[in-house]
Structures are given as structure tokens and as C-alpha cells.
Design a protein around this nucleic acid. Structure first.
Lengths: 101, 101
DNA sequence: GTTATATTTGTCATCTATTGACAAGATTTT
DNA sequence: AAAATCTTGTCAATAGATGACAAATATAAC
């Protein structure tokens, strides 16, 4: 299981691109991309579409990947019970069931 | 499965308190508490300790409850795959395993 | 080993989202 | 219908996330 930043770095290295180059393609600062790859910042969700296009990745899948990481970081850093995810899952089902009202 | 706002309202009604009264105890605006109870705003996590004290609730449990609702709302509103929670769970385990390094 | 290239780190400004506050309207109770 | 309670709308204040830039460190090329 690789974290998101690590995945970005791997993809970039596979193409032999510098931070500067990829950062330019994503229209972000290379210093900030460095922080993303080293997990010191999170990847801005708004940049996901262009990111996925560059690396031919499935957008929905990466959205899920990115969001799961945010959830995990929150739960980890605040020492919340892992049960939180089961609860959340139930709540989503409930929301969907009671939709269209 | 009751949502968080509904729980607050129920607890308040059980005591026969007005919004104004509970809001004062929580040191928030009664209009905003109304929005919380009707799910138009989320409950501020910082107010959880005092809230739990007032109603003799377990803080950790309510933290989990509140956070799961935020996760659920996000996933629901952005149409993210429910798989996100399984992923997140794995990631938390991974973080814990690789802790203390 | 020195220069150039690439990456990391720190800081602060800016933008965005969340919450606070207040006024006015609607509903309920008495 | 008057009083009390609750809801809604709006905007200001605060907090959190991201952008931008400079300087430091590390890596690679020569």
C-alpha cells in the first residue's frame, strides 16, 4: 500500500520527469509538488482531472484513493476508533436509500 | 440510524430545554444550534466535550459519530465509491503499523 | 571539487471553507 | 393575538488549505 504522494513520485520517475516539469504541467509550484510527493501537503482535488489525464489514470479511482487517504490521516491523527468507517458506510447507505425526496 | 442533528434535538427535547437554553450552555448562537439540529450545519467538534458533559455522553463515541457523519456526507455529495471506506481502513492500519518510526 | 540541476524546507500571502453573530420571518404555545 | 420558540438569510470573523517565492540542501554532470 503506497501513499498518494509516493504514487505521484513513482509515476513521475517512471517518465523521468523533474518536479519542475510535472509541476508546470499541473500548473503548480514545484516546491509544493515536492511537499505533495513527500506527504507534507495533500494533493489538491481540483488538479486530479489534469493529473489523471497526464498519466492515463482513472479519475474516479484516484478520487477514491485521494479521499481515503484524507479520511485515514484524520482518523489516525485524532485517534478515532476505526469503527468510524463502518458507521460512515451505513450512513451513506441510509442517505442513498432516503434520496430523491 | 439517526443523524447527529436529530440526536441533539432528541436529547434536548428529553430535557425540555429550548434552543436558547442549550445554546447558552454550549456558548453558541441559538439560530446556529437550530441549523445544527436540522442538519443545515455541522456541529463544531470543539464543542463536543462540553456537549458530552451536559448530556453525560461518551466523548470518544460521539467523536466517532460526528466524524462518520462528515465522511458520509462527503462521500454522498461527491458520489465517491463506497469502497473508499475500506481503503481508508487499510490505510489507517498501515499508518498504525508503521508508527513509532 | 566545483558548477549546474534538482529537491526540500520555511515562511508568508491569498484564497476558500467554516463558524459566529444578528436581524427578520415563521411557527407554536399560552 | 401576544409571547415564546424556532427557522432562515445574510454577512462578518476565524480558521484551514493552497499559492508563491526565497533560501538551504542534496544530487548529478562536468
Amino acid at each position: 500500500m503506497e501513499n498518494f504522494g509516493g504514487q505521484v513520485r513513482q509515476l513521475r520517475k517512471d517518465k523521468d520527469w523533474t518536479l519542475t516539469k510535472l509541476a508546470a504541467m499541473l500548473d503548480i509550484d514545484s516546491a509544493n509538488l515536492s511537499k505533495i510527493e513527500t506527504c507534507k501537503r495533500s494533493f489538491d482535488e481540483k488538479k486530479l482531472p489534469i493529473f489523471c489525464k497526464i498519466f492515463s489514470l482513472d479519475l474516479e479511482k484516484m478520487k477514491t484513493e485521494l479521499l481515503s487517504e484524507k479520511f485515514a490521516n484524520k482518523v489516525y491523527s485524532e485517534n478515532v476508533d476505526g469503527e468510524v468507517f463502518h458507521l460512515a458506510e451505513q450512513k451513506v447507505k441510509y442517505l442513498i436509500k432516503n434520496d430523491k425526496h
